[in-house]
Amino acid sequence: MSNVIVVGCGRVGSQLANMLSDNGSNVCVIDRNVDAFANLGRNFNGSTIQGVGFDEETLEKAGVDECDVVAAVTQLDNTNLMCCEVASRLFGVPHVIARLYNPDHERAYMQLGIDYVCGTSLVAEDVFSKVVSGHGAHLDTFGEFEVLRFSLDLSWSERNTIRVAEMERDHDIRIVAFERGDGSASSIPTRESILYNGDSVLACVRHELIEQFSKYIQD
């Protein structure tokens, strides 16, 4: 069970909060407008706090010290960025996700290492997929695809290796490049290339397949 703080309780924030709550997460929603909490409906099982999402005291009241994910989904890019920066840098939250309206800001988000969702539709679903998958390896977005860099996790498997062709076939993804876990070599793979547990992998993954694919991503 994960502890999630959602900043912003508009259409996207309320939908996301209910999805996470229904999935078993402990959810706290922050919004400066107390009337916004009506968007959550009567069946919401989480908590709410009126305040500003990048205010340290407000975040502490929301339980940021034990938080696994902060998702900032207000309608203001600067607010979302500040929420993520404060949560990550001051409180050490391991995974922060920002909603991004202006694609011109994508480079800044990537340089800061902030995971984000850019778009106007299915935003709640995209953020939900990121939260439940637990990955923070987002590099870029191309239409239906996300470009991810992550350490390969095969600890759940009986094998310590997997062929690129097997991963691509079973999960409808494309492995773009990989580097050995010890840094000894990097390569653009062929279908017969073998990947090992702990290798660093660059891959293109469809949005809707991230949760399914997340078993390969080390936390």
Rank of each mutant, 00 (worst) to 15 (best):
A36H: 14
F44W: 01
V29L: 12
K61E: 07
T79M: 06
F44V: 04
L20H: 02
V29Y: 00
F37W: 03
V29W: 00
T74I: 04
T79H: 11
G24I: 05
A62K: 14
F37Y: 06
E60P: 14
V69F: 02
D68K: 01
L20A: 13
D77W: 04
V64W: 12
D77S: 08
C67D: 08
L76E: 15
T74Y: 05
D77C: 03
C28E: 01
L76N: 13
D77M: 02
V70M: 12
A72N: 11
N39G: 06
D22A: 08
N39M: 05
V73W: 08
A62M: 07
T48C: 13
N23V: 05
K61W: 05
D77E: 01
F37N: 10
V34W: 08
G46Q: 10
N39L: 04
R42M: 10
L40T: 09
D68Y: 03
K61H: 10
A72D: 05
C28Y: 00
R32V: 01
D22H: 11
V34H: 09
G53S: 10
L20P: 00
D65P: 07
R42A: 09
V34F: 01
L81R: 12
L20T: 14
D22M: 03
S25Q: 14
D77V: 01
C67K: 15
E56A: 12
T79D: 12
V52K: 15
D55E: 15
T79A: 09
V70L: 15
D65I: 04
V70P: 00
I49V: 07
A38D: 15
G41T: 13
A36W: 07
F37C: 05
A38R: 09
A71G: 05
Q75S: 10
N80E: 04
G24S: 14
S21K: 01
D65H: 04
A62H: 04
Q75P: 01
L40A: 10
G46Y: 00
C28I: 09
A36N: 15
V34D: 15
N45A: 10
V34I: 02
N78G: 11
T58F: 03
D55F: 03
T79G: 05
G46R: 15
Q50T: 14
D68I: 11
C67G: 08
F44T: 12
L76C: 06
L76T: 05
V52L: 14
L59A: 13
V52I: 11
R42H: 11
D31R: 09
E57I: 02
D77F: 00
A36F: 06
A38F: 05
T79I: 06
D65N: 14
G63R: 13
V70I: 09
V52H: 09
G63H: 03
V29D: 01
N45I: 00
G24E: 01
I30Y: 12
N78E: 12
V73S: 10
G53F: 09
N43M: 08
F44L: 07
R42T: 08
N43A: 07
R42E: 15
D65L: 02
L81T: 12
E66L: 08
K61Q: 10
L40N: 14
T58L: 08
Q75C: 12
I49A: 01
L81Q: 07
E56G: 08
S47N: 10
R32Q: 14
D31N: 11
V73E: 15
F37I: 10
D55K: 05
I49E: 00
V27D: 03
D35A: 07
N43V: 03
T58G: 09
V34P: 03
R32G: 14
